[in-house]
């Protein structure tokens, strides 16, 4: 187990009071912990994370629980405006999830099937290619990350993403604590005091819950969905041939959104 920021600050603060400083203090209070947490950054090195979503198991409850779990953990506000909407994971129908695939003879089960869309964490991400400040980049474990503290808000990544996975803070998201009609829609914002809210003028998106992966947990949408329908979401390591996701992809037929564009999405839809 590593040492999180909160624990680090606690120890650092306490030790400063005691007149100890820097790493020496940590060696006293938590020997070996610093080495353990810095050596492993990112703590999921060597993995290639991917997600499988079983469309047959998606229903309204799974979709709403998975979405709510994500948006509450990451403090994604409801801004009550389609124009300014921020979303990390959202419901979409077949026709608009896979434009061009629809034909008039497709069965109702597929035609009316509900999909959950999110950042595909592409292996060849065009968003990272275009960013002029490296505010969005790909980690060695394949996760496409976003640093809202470096982002200049040029929105080049939004133009480059063929999946509409990126949202922009057109205004200050924290205004949901000030404007009455927005307060009513976002009671208790920020929902999660341990996760930062964003400021105006930056892009944000799904992170595959890196903070949880590092603790050895699964992304929130996966946990929430599987609580309701076991097996609706599968999350795992593509580099391990025996991982749950690899086994699933061998067994079942899967689709990826716009695979012809060569971005190599890592979210698979099992039909």
């Amino acid at each position: 187990m590593g040492i999180d920021r909160r624990a680090f600050l606690k120890i650092a603060g306490l030790s400063t009071m005691l007149g100890l400083g820097g790493k020496a203090a940590l060696d006293v209070f938590a020997p070996g912990e610093v080495e353990a947490s810095t050596k492993g950054v990112p703590l999921t090195a060597g993995k290639r994370w991917a997600m499988g979503i079983d469309v047959r198991l998606l229903d309204d409850k799974v979709i709403s629980e998975a979405t709510a779990a994500c948006h509450r953990h990451h403090n994604v506000p409801d801004l009550a405006s389609a124009k300014e909407e921020i979303k990390w994971i959202w419901e979409e129908d077949y026709e608009h999830s896979f434009p061009g695939h629809q034909h008039e003879y497709v069965g109702d089960d597929i035609k009316h099937a509900k999909f959950l869309l999110l950042c595909n964490h592409c292996s060849n991400p065009p968003c990272c290619r275009v960013c002029p400040t490296k505010a969005t980049w790909q980690r060695p474990d394949g996760i496409v990350m976003m640093d809202p503290h470096r982002c200049i808000g040029c929105r080049f990544c939004m133009a480059a993403c063929p999946f509409g996975a990126r949202s922009f803070n057109w205004g200050d998201p924290r205004r949901v604590t000030r404007i009455p009609e927005l307060i009513a829609k976002n009671p208790g914002f920020p929902f999660n005091k341990d996760y930062p809210t964003r400021s105006k003028g930056v892009v944000e998106k799904c992170t595959f819950c890196v903070d949880l992966l590092e603790k050895g947990e699964q992304p929130l949408c996966v946990t929430a969905a599987n609580k309701i329908k076991k097996g609706s979401f599968t999350f795992g390591d593509l580099s391990d041939a025996e991982s749950s996701i690899r086994v699933l992809l061998r067994k079942r037929y899967s689709l990826r959104r716009k695979s012809e564009l060569g971005t190599n999405p890592n979210v698979f839809y099992l039909i």
Binding site: A135, R150, C151, I152, V202
Partner: peptide, 9 residues
Amino acid sequence: LGNPVRIMN
């Protein structure tokens, strides 16, 4: 720019 003060980035 959404964040013009960061243009020097």
